[in-house]
């Protein structure tokens, strides 16, 4: 157990250091979601009163696509020089690698969200009518939901042809309940029409179920060359 946390922490530090030096994932994610915001602003009239109803959907769709960019990057880093093999021949627990990658992605995507949300607020002239604090658990749980399965499926799609396309193909169908929860929850808070509690519970359940499944199956996936 001790080594699990030690290796997780070491891997996380290493990933953050690598990301800090190259800034591959963060830059491409930022630029990508910026584009999405601008294109959405053209496609939908952001000044209309009903923008409050669609903003939740737009934000999360933008983050979902941006997250896929980050998720593809995480494992690409391990494939260069086949460093993943060095991990696989070591006695370090597979789940430590998974947790480190998932937490790393969580941090990257959260940073992105923190940077992009003000932009959305400005573009769509949003002001929240419901209890705004509920957006925080929705964002945290929703991001983890995307990232935990995304990390897992990105590892899975390492073993496929055209893996960059494979990831969204595997991830999106499974993520539908989570996306629905995030979008509907955010919309509920923004409009203040109905309570968002259910969505928070839904996201929490989703997170617990799939985090458990990922931890149980990741070792199998990692060693299925």
């Amino acid at each position: 157990m001790n080594s699990l946390w030690a290796v997780t922490l070491a891997t996380l530090k290493k990933d953050i250091r690598l990301e800090w030096r190259s800034k591959d994932a963060l830059n491409s994610m930022l630029f990508f979601s910026l584009l999405v915001v601008v294109i959405f602003a053209f496609a939908f009239d952001p000044l209309a009163e009903e923008s409050r109803h669609i903003a939740g959907g737009l934000i999360w769709v933008a983050f979902l696509f941006a997250a896929v960019v980050a998720l593809n990057q995480t494992w690409a880093r391990e494939l260069r020089n086949q460093v993943l093999d060095a991990y696989r021949v070591s006695p370090a627990p597979a789940n430590a690698l998974f947790l480190a990658k998932a937490v790393g992605n969580f941090i990257f995507v959260s940073v992105l969200e923190a940077l992009m949300t003000p932009l959305f607020v400005v573009f769509y002239n949003l002001h929240v009518l419901g209890p705004a604090w509920q957006l925080i658990p929705i964002a945290l749980l929703g991001t983890w939901a995307l990232v935990v399965n995304g990390t897992f499926f990105a590892a899975m799609s390492l073993r496929t042809r055209s893996r960059e396309i494979m990831l969204p193909l595997l991830l999106f169908p499974i993520s539908i309940p989570a996306v629905l929860g995030m979008v509907a929850g955010t919309t509920a808070v923004l409009t203040g029409d109905n309570p968002a509690h259910f969505y928070i519970v839904l996201l929490l359940t989703y997170d617990v179920v799939f985090t458990t499944a990922c931890l149980l199956l990741f070792e199998t996936i990692l060693h299925a060359e």
Partner: peptide
Amino acid sequence: LRRFSTSAQ
């Protein structure tokens, strides 16, 4: 996935 996998497993 089954179609596109290059894995031996």
